[in-house]
Each structure stands twice: as structure tokens, then as C-alpha cells.
Amino acid sequence: MLPSEHRLRRREDFATAVRRGRRAGRPLLVVHLNSGNDPHMPGESAPSARAGFVVSKAVGGAVQRNLVKRRLRHLMRDRIAGLPPGSLVVVRALPGAAEAEFDRLSGDLDAALRRLSAPSPPSKAPR
């Protein structure tokens, strides 16, 4: 289980991650990452990275959605420490996630996080 200090709960936090963060899509999920670039008060430790999950009815019934959420929380528990402090992560499950094997879900999450952790390419200057 993902510890409570690492869970996103507020709507504003979800919106910040989705609107201001970078996005990486995979066949089973889409990951939004807003790196913790906000300055914090001197003398205080940086807030820990937090993750939230969006699993819509398109994924399946309540049983399938809860299974997908439990799997994603379990996967993020081991990966949250590798994210920058103060990061906000939103993982949105796509319809195929309910039927996918655990290893495939894990591989898609790892690939998306690797892509988001890589430095962003320089933006092209307008001509």
C-alpha cells in the first residue's frame, strides 16, 4: 500500500499535475508528472513526492477498477522514492489496464516514468 503522505487527495493537486506537468502515454496508462520545482521554506525539508490515480468506468466495473487502483498503488510504492521531492504524479488507467497482466502494467509504468524523468528536449525557436 502507498503510505498516506505519498497520496494525492485534493482536486487542486490532481489539476496541477495534469495541467502543468509533462505527460507520457503508454498502451495501458497515461502518466502526468509535475516535478517539484517549487521553492520551499528554508530550514524545512522538501515535501515528499505524491501520487494519485484516475480509473474511470471505461476500465470496467467496480471490481476491475479497484483491482487496477490497488495494482497501481502497489507499483508506485516502490517507485515514489525515485521521484524528485515535491513532485505530483497522476496515473490515469486506460481501458486495457483491467485485463493486463501485472508485469505488463509494471512495464508501462516504468517506461512512462523513465520518459518523464529524462530531460526535456530543447524547445524549437520560432523562425
Rank of each mutant, 00 (worst) to 15 (best):
R11Q: 12
H32E: 03
G21N: 03
R22D: 13
E101L: 11
V59E: 06
P47T: 08
D110Q: 11
A111T: 14
L8M: 07
P47Y: 03
P47G: 05
P3K: 12
A111V: 09
L8S: 01
R65C: 04
A125V: 11
D13S: 14
A15Q: 15
L67Q: 11
R79W: 13
S106R: 14
R127Q: 14
V54F: 01
L109T: 09
P3C: 10
P121L: 09
V30D: 02
P95W: 10
P121F: 00
N66V: 08
M1N: 05
L2W: 11
S35L: 11
L8E: 02
L109R: 04
H32V: 02
P119F: 00
L113D: 10
N37K: 05
A58H: 07
R9Y: 01
R114A: 14
V91A: 08
V63H: 05
H6G: 00
A51E: 00
S4E: 09
R23L: 11
P84H: 06
V54D: 01
F53V: 08
P39H: 04
R73Y: 13
L94I: 06
P3N: 12
G82Y: 05
D108E: 14
L83F: 05
R26P: 00
N34I: 00
A17C: 10
S106G: 14
L88H: 09
R65M: 05
R23T: 13
R9C: 01
G36I: 02
V55F: 13
M1I: 03
E101C: 11
G61S: 05
R92M: 15
N66K: 06
R26V: 00
R7G: 00
V91T: 04
D110I: 05
P84D: 06
G61W: 08
L33H: 04
F14R: 00
A100T: 08
G52P: 04
F14A: 02
R65W: 02
S117N: 13
H74L: 09
S106Q: 15
R77N: 10
A49G: 10
A98R: 03
V63Q: 09
G43M: 00
R9I: 03
D13K: 02
